[in-house]
């Protein structure tokens, strides 16, 4: 574990050092995604504010939930950039480079392909969480901060697992870049509003097949002391970590199978 952490820190250090060689690009990348996240949120805020809330959820609560998903997406963009852009790494033959080293892909790729521009959504997300909490404060309990940590981690794992499933198609030389983008954009859109605003079919979809509702919507019920207003009753409110583990089990299984079926790309 010590060596693993030392390796990740070394990757982070060399990645930041490389990125800082091009300072304008560094700052521009962070600011670009930061403003992108804020403007997207602003559109939703104006809309929700006009109607005074959605399905009994106040504006501040919705902003708070959306902020959480932005933090999670920012981590995916930064730490798991290599998985998001996996198709490129396969096509360019970088995967071979990783596979001739005595480490797993998931040990090497996050650090090696770290992308600072993900700090943009992370900062924007933190700002939105703070703004949402200011106008609609969550219940201040002793477990607020630990639960937030669990929620954010679970959301990251859920989003990562779905990304891994789509990225695995690249092992079969199937281009899925468009699907990765669609997945990310749909998650974004779905998380902009409370899941209870959607039809029963969509709620079932984002709870079972694509468990985005576990990234913020269900666990936020506990933070605001609400009963379940969704399709699946109160047990799901506590199940974000379980949903994350289940999603990762599927995602990792698909990923492992992809590696076994990998055909390589031309020369080494």
């Amino acid at each position: 574990m010590g060596t693993y952490l030392a390796l990740q820190m070394a990757y982070l250090h060399i990645g930041l050092k490389s990125a800082l060689q091009y300072r304008v690009n560094f700052v521009g990348g962070v600011l670009g995604l930061l403003t992108h996240s804020l403007f997207a949120a602003l559109g939703g805020i104006v809309l929700i504010d006009r109607f005074g809330g959605v399905e009994g959820w106040e504006l501040g609560q919705i902003v708070f939930m959306f902020g959480l998903t932005r933090i999670q997406t920012g981590v995916i963009y930064s730490v798991f950039r290599g998985i998001v852009g996996w198709e490129f790494y396969v096509q360019e033959g970088f995967v071979d480079r990783y596979l001739v080293r005595p480490r797993g892909l998931l040990t090497q790729v996050p650090g090696a392909e770290f992308d600072v521009s993900g700090f943009g959504p992370m900062i924007a997300g933190a700002g939105l969480v703070a703004f949402g909490a200011a106008i609609s404060p969550p219940n201040l309990t002793w477990w607020l901060v630990p639960w937030l940590a669990v929620v954010i981690s679970s959301g990251i794992v859920i989003q990562l697992s779905l990304t891994m499933i789509v990225a695995s198609f690249a092992f079969y030389n199937v281009q899925m870049g468009a699907a990765t983008n669609s997945l990310e954009r749909t998650a974004w859109q779905m998380n902009l509003f409370p899941a209870s605003a959607y039809s029963a079919g969509v709620q079932a979809l984002i709870t079972v097949a694509l468990p985005w509702a576990f990234m913020a919507f269900y666990p936020a019920h506990l933070l605001y002391g609400r009963d379940s207003d969704g399709l699946f009753g109160s047990p799901v409110l506590y199940l974000s970590p379980v949903a994350a583990m289940a999603a990762f089990a599927v995602g990792y299984g698909v990923w492992r199978r992809g590696i076994r079926k990998y055909q390589g790309m031309g020369g080494m």
């Binding site: 995967v95 071979d96 596979l99 001739v100 990998y262 390589g264 020369g267 080494m268």
Partner: peptide
Amino acid sequence: STLLKLITGVL
């Protein structure tokens, strides 16, 4: 290249 990838366990 395929042979080298088999030797290194890539394939």
